[in-house]
């Protein structure tokens, strides 16, 4: 039994975000982090590994420096990393991305007992589309927004969190589960793990590795193979500053209430 975890290195959007004059993101000036929801997927995989002693393999698609992120995950306990990287893969939208990652996972080999875990969504795009689309391309069932996962033989019982409640879904392996932050608290790297991670294997899959896979075709990958195109990107204008009311006493709140009443807001 194996657990595949798909992870993404993303710019840290919680800090200051620099935008180029042409409206694109100045990625060079930003810190990269492991996508937060993906950390919950990794933790879920490691929790299952602690219980069942299975192998955990992390998959990422990105430029070669993403290997550093795979090493960090190995220091947490992930057994092996797969780095999917090629110029041909650049500019892929969610459709093309899932096509490539599905091909990579399929090339590695999915067995009946296996589970694929992904984060719900990445903070750079917030689409939540790649997980379900990988599942579709691999013809596997999916459960998204997992807040609890229990494994009993080849059946997983997943608590799927909705806006107004939850569903309990039973699903057979092999399957895709996307994880949310309520699922767990990701562990830290440990000292032993940091030493060990450099003895573990990172497999690189390039266009050459995957080009004969049925999912990989120049017309379905990369910028040209992406069904969606960016028409334009822009920064929203900042709203002008409003009226600051001096003081924090009753006279100030009276004044505010007076303005609101005069404008028929209250």
């Amino acid at each position: 039994m194996k657990i595949f975890v798909t992870v993404k290195q993303v710019p840290d959007t919680s800090g200051t975000v620099a935008v180029n004059p042409d409206g694109t993101l100045d990625r060079a000036s930003m810190q990269t982090i492991i996508n937060p929801d993906d950390m919950n997927a990794v933790e879920a995989a490691l929790t299952l590994k602690d219980e069942l002693g299975c192998k955990v393999v992390a998959f990422t698609m990105g430029p070669p420096p993403a290997e550093g992120m795979l090493r960090e995950l190995m220091a947490m306990g992930v057994d092996e990393g797969v780095l999917i990287t090629a110029r041909e893969f650049g500019g892929s939208d969610t459709y093309a991305t899932s096509q490539i990652i599905a091909a990579a996972i399929d090339t590695y080999g999915v067995e009946p007992e296996d589970i694929i875990l992904a984060g719900r969504q990445a903070i750079d795009g917030d689409t939540a589309q790649v997980g379900p689309q990988i599942a579709e391309k691999l013809h596997l069932p999916q459960v998204t927004y997992a807040g609890e996962i229990q494994k009993d033989g080849d059946v997983l019982t997943v608590k799927r969190i909705l806006e107004d409640g939850y569903m309990t879904v039973k699903v057979h392996t092999p399957c895709m589960i996307t994880c949310i932050k309520e699922l767990n608290n990701p562990r830290y790297m440990n000292i032993g793990g940091i030493f060990e991670c450099y003895n573990k294997q990172v497999v690189t899959m390039t266009y050459e590795t995957l080009k004969d896979h049925p999912l990989i075709d120049k017309s379905t990958i990369g910028l040209l193979g992406s069904p969606t195109n960016i028409l334009t990107s822009f920064t929203p204008p900042q709203k002008g500053a409003g009226m600051m009311l001096a003081g924090d006493g009753k006279e100030t709140t009276d004044k505010l209430a007076g303005i609101l009443a005069a404008k028929h807001i209250i």
């Binding site: 969610t94 459709y95 939540a128 589309q129 599942a135």
Partner: peptide
């Protein structure tokens, strides 16, 4: 958000989120 990406992948078309 669970259903739409799955449909888009099966139909081979583009989907824009949120």
């Amino acid at each position: 958000r669970d259903l739409a990406p799955r449909c888009a992948a099966r139909l081979h078309t583009g989907l824009c989120a949120d």
